[in-house]
């Protein structure tokens, strides 16, 4: 079975371990074995070392990457920010002066960056390595008739020149759409598809500005798709959609019920028949009704069909 280094980051293992559990359930079932990167830390997040010093950023990122290099595996991240930060660091480390300076820092902790491990996002591994056909073959429930609005998130899209896997058009991403459609669900287009959800540095710097951006995106989804659920491949977007819809509802800014939101592998794990108590049980918005619908007997795919 092909192995890949599972880079967890911070939010997924510490705040939303049901997302981590969904990785650990679906990938072995799809013949990819996630390997733990023991001792890996923060990528580091944009608001930390990248905001202070470029070489410190690259040193902390490359420390994480060397853990994968030692195991001769590539890296798979579930968090878009981690994907962006690690990919950009790898890009900067192509510059000889940066690589020398960073390796001088790493020498103090007996490490050396070699550049032998590539950085992938969970969505890339699913779409490009495993493929839609194999995913389809492993489904236990079909999601026909359910409507999904997708949110890819910023940091797998731009800047496309630093990423190992690119969308054909980053302003019109299709990978997540196709990953959702393979379940049988309908993915509806909406005009703010590529818009930022407002999480990240903006949320901590000015929550009201962040919510203003979020509201515009959310209304576009509601009014143009009336989706049953929102599905994202970014853990930060997941947190924004799950946390901020109830805030807007509580303020009376929106007059509809918050739309249940899933990280993509949670949806896939449910469609593959895994236990919702393990793979999709931590959220502010009540997801129980839609989970019951996804795993209802009428949707079960009969063996041999």
């Amino acid at each position: 079975m092909e192995q890949i280094g599972l880079y967890l980051g911070c939010n997924i293992p510490l705040k939303n371990p049901d997302i981590e559990q969904s990785f650990r359930k679906i990938f072995p079932a799809l013949d990819v074995q996630p390997v733990d990167l023991e001792g890996a830390g923060c990528c580091p997040a944009w608001g930390t070392a990248p905001s202070f010093d470029l070489n410190t950023w690259c040193a902390i990122s490359s420390r994480n990457i060397t853990i994968a290099e030692e195991k001769n595996v590539d890296i798979m991240t579930g968090c878009n920010s981690c994907f962006g930060v690690l990919s950009e660091a790898k890009h900067f480390l192509e510059t000889p002066a940066t690589r020398t300076a960073v390796n001088n820092s790493l020498a103090k902790i007996n490490r050396e960056y070699k550049g032998t491990s590539d950085i992938y996002h969970v969505a890339h591994v699913l779409h490009k390595k495993i493929g839609l056909t194999k995913i389809r073959e492993n489904l236990k429930y079909k999601l026909d008739g359910l409507k999904i609005a997708v949110q890819t998130g910023c940091h797998t899209l731009w800047p496309s020149d630093v990423y190992k896997v690119k969308e054909d058009n980053p302003y019109f991403p299709t990978m997540l759409k196709e990953l959702c459609e393979v379940t049988g669900a309908t993915v509806c287009h909406y005009s703010r598809l590529e818009g930022c959800c407002g999480m990240g540095g903006m949320r901590s710097t000015d929550a009201e500005k962040s919510l203003k951006l979020f509201k515009e995106k959310l209304l576009s989804i509601k009014e143009e798709t009336n989706a049953d659920m929102i599905v994202t491949t970014c853990s930060s977007c997941f947190m924004q959609f799950d946390m901020s819809q109830p805030i807007l509802k509580g303020r009376g800014v929106i007059d509809f019920e918050p739309i249940p939101t899933f990280y993509y592998t949670q949806l896939l794990a449910l469609a593959m028949g895994f236990d919702p108590q393990q793979v999709a049980c931590i959220s502010q918005i009540d997801r129980n009704p839609i989970i019951a619908e996804i795993q209802s007997d009428t949707r079960r795919i009969k063996e041999g069909m």
Partner: peptide, 14 residues
């Protein structure tokens, strides 16, 4: 404080 509101999304770079 504007620079701290940057999402580092890199739409601009693209």
């Amino acid at each position: 404080s504007s620079s701290w509101g940057c999402q580092a999304c890199n739409r601009c770079t693209e």
